[in-house]
Computed example of a mutant assay.
Amino acid sequence: MSHTAHIPSHRKPRRSASKLSLRAGVAGGVLSTIAVAGAAGPANAEPVTETIEMPTLNADLSADLSSAVAASAEATQQIALDQELQAQEDAAAAKAAKEAKTAKAEAERKAEAEEARRKAEAKAQAEAAERASRSSERTTLSASVGSDDGGSSYDSGQATGSAAAIVAFARAQVGDAYVMGSTGPNSWDCSGLVQAAYRQAGIELPRVSGDQSSRGTSVSLDNLQPGDILYWGSRSNSYHVAIYVGGGMFVGAQNPGTGVVERSLDYDMPSGAVRVL
């Protein structure tokens, strides 16, 4: 056995490569300084034989570096959080602005629709009042023919009962518009007006003019009575109808240009007439 076998080793533990590099750098700098100083000194100066202990990285320096790295990472993370929060706030503000714009547009649309509804309602009320006024003014029907009729041979007599209701309704619609296929209350075609007028007397007529002119019995144009249905064309195949209202006059929804009018038979002489009452 070696005589040194029980003597503990005095070797120091190996240092890491990074620490050795740092110590070597420091040592190199110190030795360079000493060399320069020696070169600058007198030629007969004695050589330096003192051993210089090199500084070492202690635990405090390592802790400081770790703290600095951690602080930098925390600062970077805080910046990222601040940027994310700002982006969320910007998105929320943009969404709120968009919703406010949409709500404003919807409110304006509803206001316009309400204004249009009020105007339409006011117009309908005015038209109803006008028709009521016309109806009240025309409840008494004239039956005179004589000289006021220009010598006409039509003898209509006084409208009474169901005929009076038919005539009054027809005259109350004078001034309304003509619209093909319309049955009221503010626009009519010829057969739609006749059908609605007869409904006032409790009589339900067919919808179209050809079928209406086929009802009842035929009467000559010189023996008309208020409420008779006038037709143009051939019976059962007529293309236009109107209501005789007495005094040589008729009421009919003529065309889009005139609307519902009251005219003399001479204005447009009918082909024939039928009596349903």
Rank of each mutant, 00 (worst) to 15 (best):
Ser214Gly: 14
Thr183Asn: 14
Leu224Arg: 02
Ser218Ile: 08
Ala196Tyr: 02
Ser162His: 10
Val174Lys: 13
Tyr178Gly: 06
Ala168Gln: 14
Tyr231Pro: 02
Gly161Tyr: 08
Pro206Val: 12
Val174Ala: 07
Gly233Asn: 05
Gly233Arg: 06
Leu230Trp: 03
Ala168His: 06
Leu221Arg: 09
Arg215Asp: 00
Leu193Cys: 06
Gly202Arg: 10
Phe169Pro: 11
Tyr231Asn: 02
Gly227Cys: 05
Ala165Leu: 15
Gly161His: 12
Ile229Lys: 09
Leu205Asp: 03
Ala201Met: 07
Glu204His: 12
Ser187Phe: 03
Val179Ala: 13
Pro206Met: 09
Val219Lys: 02
Val208Thr: 14
Ser156Val: 06
Thr217Arg: 15
Pro185Ala: 10
Asp189Pro: 10
Arg207Asp: 02
Met180Trp: 14
Gln173His: 11
Gln173Thr: 11
Gly192Val: 11
Val219Trp: 02
Ala177Lys: 14
Ser234Gly: 12
Ala201Phe: 08
Pro185Val: 06
Arg199Ile: 00
Ala163Cys: 08
Gly175Phe: 06
Asp228Glu: 08
Gln200Ala: 01
Ser213Pro: 07
Asp189Glu: 05
Asp189Met: 10
Phe169Val: 11
Ser213Arg: 08
Gly227Ser: 05
Val179Arg: 14
Gly202Pro: 09
Ser182His: 03
Gly202Asp: 07
Arg235Glu: 05
Leu224Val: 05
Trp232Ile: 06
Trp232Pro: 01
Gly227Val: 11
Ser162Trp: 03
Gln225Phe: 00
Gly175Trp: 13
Gln225Leu: 12
Thr160Lys: 15
Pro185Asp: 00
Ala201Thr: 10
Leu205Phe: 04
Thr217Phe: 00
Gln200Asp: 06
Gly184Thr: 01
Arg199Glu: 09
Ile229Met: 09
Ser220Trp: 01
Tyr198Asn: 04
Tyr198His: 13
Leu205Gln: 07
Ile229Asn: 04
Asp222Arg: 13
Val219Leu: 05
Gly216Asp: 04
Ser191Asp: 03
Ile166Glu: 05
Ile203Trp: 07
Val208Lys: 03
Gly227Met: 08
Asn223Leu: 00
Leu224Ala: 06
Leu230Ala: 02
Gln173Trp: 02
Gly175Tyr: 03
Val174His: 08
Leu230Gln: 07
Tyr178Arg: 13
Leu193Ile: 07
Val167Ser: 06
Leu193Met: 11
Ala165Asn: 14
Pro185Trp: 03
Ser234Trp: 01
Gly157Cys: 12
Thr183Met: 11
Pro206Gly: 06
Leu193Arg: 11
Ile203Asp: 06
Thr217Trp: 01
Ala172Phe: 02
Ser182Arg: 10
Gln225Thr: 10
Ile229Gly: 01
Tyr198Gln: 05
Ala164Gly: 04
Ser213Gly: 07
Asp189Cys: 04
Leu205Ala: 03
Ala177Phe: 01
Gly161Cys: 04
Asp176Glu: 12
Ala170Ser: 14
Gly210Trp: 11
Arg235Ser: 05
Asp222Leu: 04
Arg235Tyr: 00
Asp176Asn: 15
Pro226Asp: 01
Tyr231Phe: 15
Asp176Gly: 00
Gln225Asn: 06
Ile166Trp: 03
Ala164Cys: 12
Gly175Ile: 11
Ala196Arg: 15
Trp232His: 04
Gly157Asp: 12
Val219Tyr: 01
Ala170Tyr: 00
Ala165Trp: 05
Gln158Ile: 13
Thr160Tyr: 02
Glu204Asp: 15
Thr160Phe: 01
Arg235Pro: 00
Val167Thr: 13
Ala201Ile: 09
Tyr198Glu: 08
Ser209His: 10
Arg171Val: 13
Ser162Asn: 15
Gly157Val: 13
